[in-house]
Structure formats: structure tokens, C-alpha cells
Amino acid sequence: MKFAEKLPQWVALGLAFPLIFLNGWLLLVVFNYFHTILNVVLAASLLAFVLDYPVNLLEKYGVKHTPAVVLIFLVTLFGLVGAGITLVPIALTQLRELANRLPTWIQSGATQLEALQNLAIARNWPIDLTGLTTELTQRLSSQAQAIAGQALGFAVGTVGGLLDVILTVVLTFYLLWRGRNLWEGLLRWLPPRLAKELRFSLGENFHNYFVGQVTVASLMGLSMTLGFLLLRVPFGLLFGLVVGVFSLVPFGGSLSIALVTVLVAFNDFWLGVKVLLVALAIQQGIENGIAPRLLGGFTGLNPVWVLISLLLGAKLGGVLGLLIAVPLASFIKSTSDSLRADSDSSPVEVSSAH
């Protein structure tokens, strides 16, 4: 110990880096080996986190825990099955039709850019869109079919994993029913102060985040779908669902609105403008009027760290990694800040006692 204390800090960090790297590599190997199982556990845990909120509401009104769990679980299950029977086939059909029409839409967008370029030349505007038109057409034409094919493959693969879906549903019910006892049993193995902090941070960062984010995403998807249908946007249902799903992730709503606007503008420029205005109005209304009350500022993360956590989550865990990246990063930050504050204040308390 004395020898380690005498080492310069840069030497200690240099010795610690290989150990951190090897441990991280080992965790990645284990994660990849148990990837399917971890996906089922994570998906079930997220669903249980979200459904625990209405269960708690029913318990506050005097409903026993088990009947409340059964009622919320059955309502959710029948709702998802109903949506899968009605909405999913329509969305998949529209996705296939969109994949077939994308080349035509892209060519229409290129034609509109050429017309704008001709207008700029006729009026001596300092605008040159020739290179942009060619590059945009080539890039989008080469990637549009690939993206649509990957989306179709992902949807078919998700529906095809029937065993994983069944395991997720069953595990969600048991976590919702007995999950509190499970978490309490795991936390008993930890030191009391750490267990107390983890219990608070888990509820604050995961439970509240997912309840708020799912509510906001649902409102975004429903409002966007209705707005697009009223505007008679082609594939309005598909585009509304895309915005709703993307809104589960920070910055996903803005990205999906931009994507939908560009696609619609390729087919009809002025309809694309209307889509952008309506989508921005809905988004600002929900994010400024509803989202702060549901989400608040509890994540406490700098936007840069939010982006980094999203990139790491997508790289390590795919879609589920994107969903848990921000609350996990916020959980780590809030826990470490609280423990560090406690450790910094403890010497002051001791000295004041003396």
C-alpha cells in the first residue's frame, strides 16, 4: 500500500488502464454471448418499469397488488395485440409501397431542384444547385432501397422471433408481479448507503424517464398521424408511427420530422412545407407544454453526453441500447454525484462533532 501511494498519479493511471480495458473487453464478450437473453431481460424490464406506474395508481385507489397487475397486464396485452392486428399490417403495406415509390420521389425532388436552379439562373441569383442535385440524387437513390429493405427485414425479424416475444411477455408479467421483491433482494447484498442511493436513482432515472418518454412518444405519434391524415399526406399512418417510435429516443422526434419532411417535399414541395409547419407546431406544443411536466430536468446530462451515450448505446445494444442509454448515463451520473457529495461532507460532519 505504501508503495502504491508513492507512485505518481500518471503511473497509477497507466497501470489501471490495461485492467479497465481488459475488464471492458471481457464484459463485451459476455454481453455478445448472452445477447439474446439480455435483450429479453432488458425489454421485459423496460415494459415492467412503464406498467408499474398505472399499477401504483390503482393501488393508491385501494386495489390490491395482484388484481392491479393482472388488470394492467391484460389491458396492455390486448391493446398491443389489437394494434398488431390492425395497425402493423397497414404500416408494413405502406412501407413496401414507399420502398417502391422512393426512386420516383427522389427523381421528382431532383426535378424540382433543377427547376429552382433554372429560376436562379434566369434571375441571376448567386445559387448553384447543379452539384447538389446530382450528388443528392445519387446518394439517396443508392441508399433508399437499402434502408427500406433493412426496415422490412427488421420488422419481419421482430415478428418472426415468436419465442423471444413469448418469453418477454411472460417475464414482463413476473417482473411486474414480483419485481419489487426481486430488486429488494438484490439490493440487500449491497452496503446500506449504496443500496439506498441505487433504489432512489433507479426510480428517478429509469421509472420516471420511461413513463414520461413513452407518454410523450405516444402523444407525438397519435398527433402526427392525425395531422398527416388531415393533410392527406401519402403514407400518413406510416410517417406518424415513425415519428412516434423515434420520439422514444432524445432528438429522435426532430430527426424523424426532418426525414419525413424531406421525403414528402420530394414528391410535393408545398405539401412538404405544410408537413414541416404542422409537425413543428405539434412538436413544440408537446415538448414545451407536456414533456417538461412528465420528464422534467432529472437527467441532468449535458446534451453532448446525451449524444455520446446514444452513440455508445446504439453500438453496444442496438435498439434497446438506444432506449436505455440516456437513463443509464443519468443513473451513473446521479449516483456517483450523490456518493461523492456524501464522502466530501462526511469529514466536515466528523470535525464539527469533535
Rank of each mutant, 00 (worst) to 15 (best):
N23A: 15
T215C: 00
I106Y: 06
L162F: 12
V249D: 01
P303Y: 13
E97H: 10
V63L: 14
V211W: 11
V156Y: 10
L310C: 06
P191V: 11
T130C: 04
A146G: 03
Q112H: 07
S334F: 10
K274A: 14
V159E: 04
P67R: 12
V348R: 15
L320V: 06
N288Y: 11
R193I: 12
V326Y: 01
R199Y: 06
I166K: 06
V214C: 01
L132T: 05
V211Y: 08
L15T: 10
P292T: 08
Y209Q: 07
S345R: 14
Q284Y: 11
D52P: 00
T137S: 13
H65S: 06
G131R: 11
L190Q: 07
A325G: 06
V245A: 15
P8E: 04
N205K: 11
I332Q: 01
H35A: 12
I90Q: 10
G240F: 09
L310W: 06
L19H: 07
L92G: 01
A91C: 09
L222G: 07
G149V: 02
E287L: 11
T134Y: 07
R139Y: 08
A122C: 05
G297H: 13
L51C: 02
G157W: 01
P292Q: 08
L152K: 04
A314M: 09
R139G: 01
K60L: 08
E5D: 12
I290G: 07
T335S: 14
L58W: 03
F154S: 05
V243E: 01
K333M: 10
D337Y: 08
S218P: 00
N56P: 00
F78I: 13
W270S: 12
F206V: 05
S247C: 08
Q143K: 11
V170G: 00
L190R: 09
G296P: 02
A281K: 02
V260Y: 01
L277V: 14
G289S: 12
G313Y: 02
V69I: 03
T66W: 12
P67W: 13
V319C: 03
S351C: 10
F21S: 10
E114H: 09
L311F: 13
G160Q: 12
M220I: 02
V55N: 03
G244L: 00
F34H: 11
Q283I: 02
L51P: 00
S223H: 07
S330H: 04
F21H: 05
M220Y: 00
Q9E: 15
T86R: 11
F17L: 15
I85V: 14
L237H: 04
L328V: 10
S141P: 01
V30L: 13
L152W: 00
F269D: 05
V159S: 10
L87I: 14
R180W: 05
A258I: 09
S108F: 04
R188K: 15
G62Y: 05
V304L: 15
P192C: 09
F73T: 10
T335G: 04
I37Q: 13
N23G: 15
W125E: 12
T172S: 05
I37Y: 08
V278I: 15
K6H: 10
L320N: 11
G149S: 05
